[in-house]
């Protein structure tokens, strides 16, 4: 029941915040469903992308919390299939990015998304410290965070002999600049994404 749920376009609605922060106009969606139809991960989501948009259009604390607690926003791969096909040119991936950020900020992350978030963090750490992906570091870091110690362990020797796993990390030249990006965006986001 959303008595006053639909009311707050003018006030601080999540859809309004998305428009303000990312420029993505949620109101433009006319529910054709093409994004959900083409999304490679729609089957794994709790709400398909078009439904997320409709929930944001309808608005209200209840639905907005459902969106922020959804598994969908974490399953989204940012493959941009939806965006490239959307007749209204709504940038759903950017919207999803913002929703993930908000979900983290408000501590509303979906319990099912724990590992995904751990992986995101390991990945970002690798970028932060080396300026690029350090595979071994990523794997070790992720396993430490997730405690999935034996997952995919059989793949390691194969990858090693194919030269896919460098034991010593490579760094890039502009590492201080990368660090600065991280510190700035964590300030802007209010909380460190780590």
């Amino acid at each position: 029941m959303s008595t006053d749920a639909h009311h707050d376009k003018a006030t601080a609605s999540l859809a309004g915040a998305i428009l303000e922060q990312t420029g993505v106009p949620v109101d433009k969606c006319y529910q054709c469903g093409k994004c959900s139809a083409g999304c490679p991960l729609a089957a794994d989501m709790d709400y398909p992308p078009s439904l997320i948009l409709r929930m944001l259009q309808a608005g209200g604390p209840e639905l907005e919390e459902k969106v922020l607690r959804s598994y969908t926003i974490w399953v989204c791969l940012t493959c941009e299939t939806c965006y490239s096909r959307c007749p209204m040119e709504i940038d759903i991936p950017v919207m999803m990015d913002y929703l993930r950020h908000e979900s983290l900020r408000l501590g509303m992350t979906s319990p099912r998304a724990k590992d995904i978030i751990r992986f995101h963090r390991s990945f970002l750490d690798s970028i932060k410290y080396t300026g690029r992906l350090y595979e071994v570091g990523l794997v070790v870091d992720y396993k430490a965070r997730s405690m999935h110690l034996l997952q995919d362990v059989k793949l390691a020797p194969k990858m090693y002999f194919k030269g896919k796993l460098n034991l010593i990390p490579e760094t890039i030249k502009g590492l201080p600049l990368i660090r600065r990006i991280f510190s700035r965006s964590s300030k802007a986001g209010g909380e460190d994404a780590r």
Binding site: M1, S2, T3, A5, L51, R54, A58, L63
Partner: peptide, 11 residues
Amino acid sequence: DTLLGAQPVEI
């Protein structure tokens, strides 16, 4: 709202 799985809406 049938686009939200027929969630009841009261205005």
